[in-house]
Design a protein around this nucleic acid. Structure first.
Length: 197
DNA sequence: GCGACAG
DNA sequence: ATCTTGTCGC
């Protein structure tokens, strides 16, 4: 079972510069492939249209993948969305892959407080429907929000993310591509000029 | 109808 | 998302 994590980092200085990263992990939790590329957003971020802004990177990186991806995990939401159709659901249709969304902020719905222990979770409800989970990936950190990209069950989505615990708030599946893209962006934006002392 | 809205 | 060094705490 190969799980892929995707994320993209944006330049503050150049609105047309961003770096996308796609990291593939195997069952042992090891990175077996990692693809990084600079991309051009082309338009600003618009609430509700996150999938459009981040899809450019997937269009470029997915074709480079050598191993078959079983599940794609992205930054953002799946069913935790006003119309229960966030970016992860969009990608599920576009790329015909099972997907999962992990968001750092709640976009839609409500949830009850959850225990402070790592692994605790609480259902996110919207109009009586269970659209995802508020999930604590590490002890005493703020929860993240996990939802399916419309193919997997909410519980299966959480079960998969759980395998990527790393002691931080953000599970490794998404943290890895996040850091990789950020680091690449740093290098291409040039060495930081340190103040003269 | 209006406003709010993941990154 | 990004802006930002040191600093407080385990």
């Amino acid at each position: 079972m190969i799980i892929a994590g995707y994320d993209i980092s944006y330049s503050k200085h150049d609105p047309d510069l961003a770096v996308a990263a796609l990291s593939l992990f195997n069952d042992a939790g090891k990175v077996i492939e990692e693809h990084i590329e600079t991309v051009t957003p082309g338009f600003p971020y618009e609430p509700g249209k996150l999938y459009l802004r981040e899809k450019i990177g997937l269009d470029i990186l997915l074709p480079r993948v050598q191993n078959p991806i079983d599940v794609l995990v992205i930054d953002g939401n799946g069913t935790i969305h006003p119309e229960k159709f966030g970016a992860a659901c969009r990608y599920h249709q576009l790329y015909k892959l099972d997907t999962i969304g992990i968001a750092k902020n709640l976009l839609s719905g409500t949830f009850q407080d959850l225990a402070p222990a790592a692994g605790s979770k609480s259902p996110v409800i919207l109009a009586e429907e269970h659209i995802g989970y508020a999930y604590r990936a590490a002890t005493d950190v703020k929860p993240i929000f996990i939802s399916t990209g419309c193919a997997l069950t909410q519980d299966h989505a959480v079960e998969i993310v759980t395998k990527f615990h790393n002691g931080f708030r953000i599970p490794e599946i998404t943290r890895r591509p996040d850091m990789a893209s950020r680091e690449r962006l740093r290098t291409i934006e040039g060495p930081v000029n340190r103040p003269n002392h």
